[in-house]
């Protein structure tokens, strides 16, 4: 059983390495296109919504150096290709969100808060107070578009926070602690 498993793993690894060999033998522009498609379908396609994709892509950037890092992509293609691909994807997703209407952006934030966070209230408070969303912006972008995005995102967070407050079930009601009505 253990030997069979080992053979399978070895075959898997050989296939990956062969794939890497093919990738590195392609011209750079083709490798870039393949890598971008790979990132879009394999990694970004699994995430719920563009806002989650933006958060993910921003998190692949090293805060100290400003360079994008992704072990899987770097291993499969090369470090410069991985970096370029991540930067391109980051800019694409950012632009698509930044120029979207406030309503569409609010829907995205709402979806992110609902599905990606264990404690939505904490997330909303933290993002609003610390303005942690500022790190979502790619470093080389039009400052006016960045301004539009930050302004709309802070408004979207406020709208989501308001709707969250409204929709949240009253704890007293939830646990049946409401005082009895005079008729009872």
């Amino acid at each position: 059983m253990g030997a069979k498993n080992f053979v399978c793993k070895t075959e898997e690894l050989t296939a990956v390495l062969r794939g890497k060999e093919i990738m590195t033998s392609l011209p750079i522009s083709e490798t870039f296109d393949v890598a971008l498609q790979d990132l879009r379908t394999r990694t970004l396609g699994r995430l719920q919504g563009d806002f989650a994709r933006l958060v993910y892509l921003a998190s692949t950037r090293n805060y100290n150096t400003g360079r994008y890092e992704h072990d899987g992509l770097s291993f499969r293609y090369s470090m410069p290709v991985a970096e370029r691909v991540l930067a391109t994807a980051h800019r694409e997703v950012f632009l698509s969100l930044a120029l979207r209407s406030l309503e569409a952006l609010t829907d995205e934030v709402q979806q992110y808060v609902r599905f990606e966070s264990d404690s939505p209230e904490e997330l909303l408070k933290l993002w609003t107070d610390l303005q942690a969303y500022r790190i979502l912006v790619p470093s080389q972008d039009d400052p006016l578009i960045v301004k539009i995005f930050l302004s709309n995102l802070s408004a979207a967070l406020a709208i989501v926070a308001e709707s969250w407050k409204r929709d949240r079930p009253d704890p007293a009601q939830q646990f049946g602690l409401r005082s009895p009505s005079p008729g009872r």
């Binding site: 406030l102 309503e103 539009i148 408004a155």
Partner: peptide
């Protein structure tokens, strides 16, 4: 150099965002 000029104008000067926001926040 940017190609999104029309969308930028839409975002800054359009009333769509304002109409969506004005009854929802303090």
């Amino acid at each position: 150099s940017f190609e999104e000029a029309d969308q930028v104008v839409e975002r800054i000067f359009g009333d769509e965002d304002w109409n969506f926001l004005r009854h929802r926040v303090p």
